[in-house]
Deep mutational scan, measured.
Amino acid sequence: KWTITVQGEEAIKWAIKVAEARNLDYTVHIDGDQAHITIE
């Protein structure tokens, strides 16, 4: 299990796209213009 933090709307969209493309189980916690994405 690991967490990445991305900043900015484009980076958030990209990170989610990558997680979905790899069929990963993930949760997103949005904090202002940052998102913390935890991959199970």
Rank of each mutant, 00 (worst) to 15 (best):
V28G: 00
K1H: 11
V28Y: 04
V6P: 00
A35F: 11
V18H: 07
T38K: 04
V18W: 15
T3K: 07
N23V: 03
D25R: 15
A15V: 14
W14P: 03
T38R: 06
A15K: 01
V6T: 01
H29D: 08
W2I: 11
E9Q: 11
N23A: 06
T27K: 09
D25V: 14
K17W: 12
W2A: 04
H29W: 14
E40S: 14
I4Q: 02
K13S: 06
T3A: 05
I4W: 10
N23R: 09
H36A: 07
K13L: 09
E20L: 10
N23L: 08
W2M: 08
W14M: 13
E20N: 11
E40L: 15
E9S: 12
T5P: 02
K17M: 13
V18K: 04
E10C: 15
W2S: 03
N23Y: 07
H36M: 12
I4S: 01
N23E: 06
Q34Y: 14
V6F: 05
A15M: 11
A19W: 03
G8N: 03
A35L: 08
L24W: 15
Q34I: 15
W2R: 05
T27R: 07
Q7A: 08
T5Q: 05
Q7Y: 14
R22D: 05
V18D: 05
D33A: 08
N23D: 06
G8H: 02
V18P: 00
I16M: 05
I37A: 02
I12F: 08
D33Q: 09
I39P: 00
A11I: 07
I12A: 02
V18R: 04
Q34D: 06
A35S: 03
I4M: 06
Q34T: 14
I4F: 11
V28W: 05
A35Y: 12
A15W: 15
H29N: 08
G8W: 10
H29S: 11
T3Y: 11
I16N: 01
H29Q: 12
H29I: 15
N23P: 05
G8V: 09
K13I: 09
V18Y: 15
T5V: 13
A19D: 00
I30A: 04
T5K: 04
I16S: 02
I4C: 15
Y26F: 13
A15F: 15
I16Y: 03
G32Q: 05
V28R: 01
K13E: 08
K1S: 11
D31W: 09
A19G: 02
A21M: 12
H36W: 14
N23I: 05
D33P: 06
G8Q: 01
K13P: 00
W2D: 02
A21Q: 10
K1V: 08
V6L: 08
V18G: 03
I4A: 01
I30Y: 14
E10H: 06
V28F: 04
H36V: 14
T38P: 00
D33N: 11
K1G: 10
Y26K: 00
K1Y: 10
W14Y: 09
E40V: 14
I4P: 01
E20Y: 04
Q7N: 07
K13W: 08
R22F: 15
Q7W: 15
T38N: 05
E9V: 11
L24Y: 09
I30L: 10
Y26S: 01
D33M: 08
A15P: 02
V28T: 02
D33R: 07
